[in-house]
Simulated scan of single mutants.
Amino acid sequence: MAISKSDQEKKDAGAANPALRTPTDLKPEATGQIANALNAVLADVFALYMKTKNFHWHMSGPHFRDYHLLLDDQATELFAMTDPLAERIRKLGGKTLRSIGHVSRLQRIPDNDADFVEPSQMLGELCDNNRALAASLREAHEVCDDNRDIATASLIENWIDETEERTWFLFEAVRSPDKTGH
């Protein structure tokens, strides 16, 4: 029997198996809320990492080398977020992502499977996706603040800064001299 998406989402949410629970002074409801917020962010980070690598691999045009290297650097930075995010969820006694399917159920960053994407469209799309990730990180920070999870909030603050820097670099790379809007 197939598991429906809503049943699977319920299965994915909540605390870890008792054998995997980690002691914390945070209430179980708090750890569940934080784990859910962080798992959604983690899914977005994996989706954005894959999209960034996709665009890195399929870059073309006169700025190939610069854009190829920029996207490789950004992908490395995104991937570096994954383990600390997942381990933070586990430190709180939550369970984290288990598969690509789990990522796809939670991700809010859309995939791009197009055969060809213009370099400026790639950079613009990644800029928008990083802005969306920053907003998601701020939402997760609010959940942490509401539940007095200072340690997770502190990690998120650094990731927001890194995400804003990626957004800035992408924005500047695609901005034409006569466009100054965001």
Rank of each mutant, 00 (worst) to 15 (best):
L71D: 07
H182S: 11
A30I: 03
S99T: 11
A19L: 14
A15Y: 04
E157N: 09
S120G: 12
Q8G: 08
A19G: 04
D83I: 06
L123P: 07
V103W: 01
H58T: 12
I160Y: 06
N112C: 10
A173C: 09
P110S: 10
E165M: 05
T22C: 14
A16N: 10
T31V: 10
R148T: 13
A80S: 13
K10V: 02
K91L: 11
Y67K: 14
F46S: 05
S60E: 12
A13F: 01
R98F: 05
T180H: 15
W57T: 08
D146Q: 09
D161F: 07
L69D: 12
A2C: 08
K51L: 06
D83N: 04
I156S: 10
P110W: 00
P28N: 15
N54Q: 05
L126H: 01
E77G: 15
M59E: 02
N130V: 03
V174W: 02
R21P: 04
V117F: 04
A43I: 01
L106F: 03
A35H: 06
R105H: 09
V45D: 03
D83W: 14
I109V: 15
N112E: 04
F116W: 06
L42W: 09
D113K: 15
A132S: 08
N54M: 01
G14D: 05
L155S: 08
A135G: 06
G61C: 11
V174R: 09
E165I: 09
N54G: 14
R21Y: 06
A35S: 05
L20I: 11
A132K: 14
V143T: 09
P28F: 02
P110A: 06
A40S: 14
A16D: 01
A134L: 04
E118H: 15
H68P: 03
T167R: 15
L123C: 03
C144K: 15
L42T: 14
R131E: 11
A75M: 02
